[in-house]
Structures are given as structure tokens and as C-alpha cells.
Design a protein around this nucleic acid. Structure first.
Lengths: 142, 142
DNA sequence: ATATACTTGACTATTTTAGTCAGGTTTATA
DNA sequence: TATAAACCTGACTAAAATAGTCAAGTATAT
């Protein structure tokens, strides 16, 4: 069970973006340099974030990206959703025949996976981008 | 972010095992048939479970497996640990150079992933095999 | 004009997953 | 003691997912 780096990068890049957001648009080039993420990969990720209206692009020289909503309103769940990072524990939903239909034991673990999925999703729904930045500020080193 | 089927199968198979455990050893063949998991794959999984002393094998005709501890004492975390299903969110721990060392923004998400990891692990540490079976009994259909 | 920066889609090497396969060993029971 | 049921182990592999790269643009501030 692991997070893919696409999801991790998305959160990381947005956190970076959120810190500079008030001043100017942030270029992907800068994020790429600061966070060590390939520019091409960032473009893929931001394309998705833009489609889901999490960020807004500003073209041309001195262009870049800004947040489209306030950091407080961007939950981690929105970010993961945008880049197709899904929390997926059960498989039996799609396979209708081999699934847990009628089988007691399978249904029993099915409940467990659902519960786990909710548990994780709750975590993501509670946390906003702002929470991340706040936390960081508290811990900032000089 | 997803669970691998090795982890899912391990839990499923143990739940199956736990229900028949009091009477006789349960053969992998039976579990394989009941749960639709390949026998060869089950053997791989049970080999690991045995090494971690979660189950005990009984050889020979009419042999099979029994739980080595009480269902109450087997937590999901033990099971996942046995089959190498790890909850892994952060990557920066092993890469010492590209990691979050000195970088504020990385450290900030690092905290997040740690928090998430704990959140999930807590869930696994709370649930025991017994919880699963109990739940099932409550929902048993006639 | 032109450099900077976004935009898109196709492509690919690597890794992980989810098993299979082959060839054992052990032991209850007839 | 023969034998079949059941465990045991390690090597192998096809398929899928991941983590990007590459190429060829378009838009716009200066």
C-alpha cells in the first residue's frame, strides 16, 4: 500500500506554490528547480490541476500558476482526485462473478476494506493546503 | 494508493481459517476452493504467515493450518507485516541527498505523509481477526 | 520580434504485481 | 510400508502500473 509519486508531487508542488502565491504567479520552472521534480512531469500534473480548477495559469513572460481557490478551501482529497490518485482497497466491486456476492467470508473482509477506505478519505478531507503551510511556518528554521 | 492482493488475500484466508479453526486444521485446498485463490499463491502467503508465527502447520493427510494465537491477538498489522504489505507514503527517507534535508517545503509534506502513515497504521493496529469474524456473525444471512 | 512559459499527446524503460511451475519433503492412514 | 494428501521452496514470467521523457506546438508580456 503506497502513494504514487504523482500524488505526492502534486501536493508538494501546490504547497510550494501556495507559499509564493500572494505575490506573483509561480513558474513551473521554479517549482521544478526548488523541488527537484522534472519540468515535463510537472506540466502533466498541472494540466490536470488546472482542469479541476485548483490552479489557474497565466501565460507569457513572468507567467506561471496561481491558486484558483484559497488554500483553506483546497483539501487534499481534491488534489488527489485531480491527479487520479485514488484510495482503492477493494476489488470485488467490479468483478461481479468472482466477487463477494453470496460469499460470507468475502463480504466480511469487504466491509473492512470499505471502512479503511473511509478512514483514509476522512483524513484527506480534513486536511487543507493551508494546514500544511501553517504547520510549516510554525516549524520554520532561521 | 492501493492495497495489493497479497495483503487482501492474507486477511481473507485467515478470516476463513479462523472460522473453522476450533474444530480441525483447515487445508489450503479448502481455502483455495472457498475463496477462489490459487493454491500456489496461498502456499506462498502461508509460508510467510507461518514464519511470523501467526499460523501453525499440521502435516500429513487431514493436515492443514491452525491459528497459532487467538484471533483476538492477531491484529491486521501483524498480518500485513508478515506478507510484506507495508504502508509506505514517504520516499525521502532512503534517498539522503535528494531527500527533504534542509528543504523547508519538502519537510512540510514529509510531516503530512508521516501523519497519514500513522493514521492508517493505527487502524490496522486496532483491528483484530476476531473483530472481523464477530462482525460477520452479526450480519450472517440464513 | 522573441524569449518565456504554458499545453498536449504520444511514447517508453523500469518496476511491481500476481501469479505459475517444478520439484521437492513430511506424515496419517489403509 | 506404500501412498496420497498436504505442506514447502525457489525460480520464473506475463501483464499492468509507474514515472517519467520527448516532440511539437500555442499564447503573451516586454
Amino acid at each position: 500500500m503506497k502513494l504514487t509519486s504523482k500524488g505526492r508531487y502534486a501536493v508538494l508542488a501546490l504547497a510550494d506554490l501556495a507559499r509564493f502565491d500572494n505575490i506573483n504567479p509561480v513558474s513551473l520552472r521554479d517549482i521544478s528547480l526548488r523541488q527537484g521534480i522534472s519540468l515535463d512531469y510537472l506540466e502533466q500534473i498541472f494540466s490536470k490541476l488546472r482542469k479541476k480548477e485548483i490552479v489557474q495559469s497565466i501565460r507569457g513572460t513572468q507567467g506561471g500558476y496561481i491558486l484558483k481557490k484559497r488554500a483553506k478551501e483546497i483539501k487534499l482529497t481534491n488534489i488527489f482526485d485531480a491527479v487520479d490518485e485514488k484510495v482503492k482497497t477493494v476489488q470485488c466491486k467490479k468483478e461481479s462473478k468472482k466477487g463477494c456476492n453470496g460469499k460470507l467470508t468475502k463480504c466480511l473482509t469487504h466491509n473492512l476494506w470499505d471502512e479503511l477506505e473511509n478512514h483514509i478519505n476522512n483524513f484527506f478531507e480534513e486536511k487543507s493546503l493551508e494546514d500544511l503551510i501553517k504547520k510549516d511556518t510554525n516549524e520554520r528554521r532561521i
